[in-house]
Amino acid sequence: MVAVAALAWTLTAAQARDMGVEPGTMGMAMPLFLALWLAMMVAMMFPSVAPVALTWARGIARRSTGAVRAGRTAAFVCGYLLVWTAFGLVAYGLLALTGDLVHDHPDAGPWIGAGAFALAGLQQLGPLKNICLRHCRSPMLQLMRYAHYRPLARDLRVGLHHGLYCLGCCWGLMILLVPLGVMNVAAMAAVAAVIFLEKLWRHGPALSRVAGVAFLVLAGLCLVEPLQDWLLPGLTTDGTPMGPMEDTDPMDDMRAAA
């Protein structure tokens, strides 16, 4: 899974280099966006979910052959990715909406960014985050319950359930890709690092709360014009902040063209 994640990072970085960071869906149709989103989720989420998949495969199928364990792990991963693919539909809708909004109303960009950071901060500090993060950090009790599921599609179902917990834990962090840019590789790496440390580092819960407070502070800073290039690359066009537009005299434009 780590090797697949490394390959996904390589493909995503290469694609991002060709596309750049722009508002909205960057003209991508939904099928293409979902394919790229899936590669991004593999890159960002596989390092942190790999220990859970390994624990499930070893604990439940310890008497099976390596091929059987690999197949069951693959079913677990498919269920997990189905959840994030479904969330990709939500992400596509949000990006399409915000992209249209900042093009039609440029002064809305900073407010959208502030709202995204504030939402992420509140989610980090909320009770749902704590419940889901506890599961992701210590999934053994839940995995033991899964062992009593009927064998038919059990591994897929386990992956779905764990994916839902993971989504409940991380959706706020993914919302940050709206202002930071869905193809911003540096932002993706930062979000992936926070997710990894939250789930696997012994100080992960404390990090989650610190990140929540930091996001609330950044929400306010999104409204400070000199910082908008840094905080809102996903809400800008050609490097120009989507802030208020200056009025121009049409005669000046005609004279300049002449």
Rank of each mutant, 00 (worst) to 15 (best):
residue 77 V to G: 02
residue 256 A to I: 14
residue 122 L to T: 06
residue 102 V to I: 10
residue 145 R to W: 09
residue 121 G to F: 01
residue 64 S to V: 01
residue 6 A to C: 13
residue 27 G to S: 10
residue 117 F to Q: 00
residue 30 M to C: 14
residue 145 R to S: 12
residue 70 A to E: 09
residue 210 V to C: 10
residue 105 H to L: 13
residue 157 R to Y: 06
residue 120 A to D: 02
residue 248 T to D: 15
residue 58 R to A: 10
residue 179 P to W: 07
residue 117 F to S: 00
residue 35 A to T: 15
residue 208 S to V: 02
residue 183 M to A: 12
residue 193 A to C: 15
residue 211 A to K: 06
residue 239 G to H: 02
residue 201 W to P: 02
residue 106 P to H: 06
residue 187 A to Q: 10
residue 29 A to T: 14
residue 21 V to N: 05
residue 171 W to Q: 03
residue 72 R to M: 09
residue 177 L to C: 05
residue 196 F to C: 09
residue 69 R to P: 00
residue 87 F to V: 04
residue 220 G to N: 06
residue 28 M to G: 09
residue 127 P to D: 03
residue 188 M to T: 04
residue 172 G to S: 06
residue 117 F to C: 03
residue 82 L to D: 07
residue 143 L to K: 03
residue 224 V to R: 14
residue 34 L to T: 07
residue 212 G to E: 06
residue 75 A to T: 07
residue 182 V to I: 15
residue 243 G to E: 05
residue 257 A to S: 14
residue 222 C to R: 07
residue 112 I to W: 05
residue 222 C to A: 13
residue 46 F to H: 03
residue 59 G to C: 03
residue 39 A to T: 14
residue 215 F to Q: 08
residue 117 F to V: 02
residue 137 R to H: 02
residue 34 L to N: 04
residue 255 R to Y: 13
residue 20 G to Q: 09
residue 194 V to Q: 02
residue 33 F to P: 01
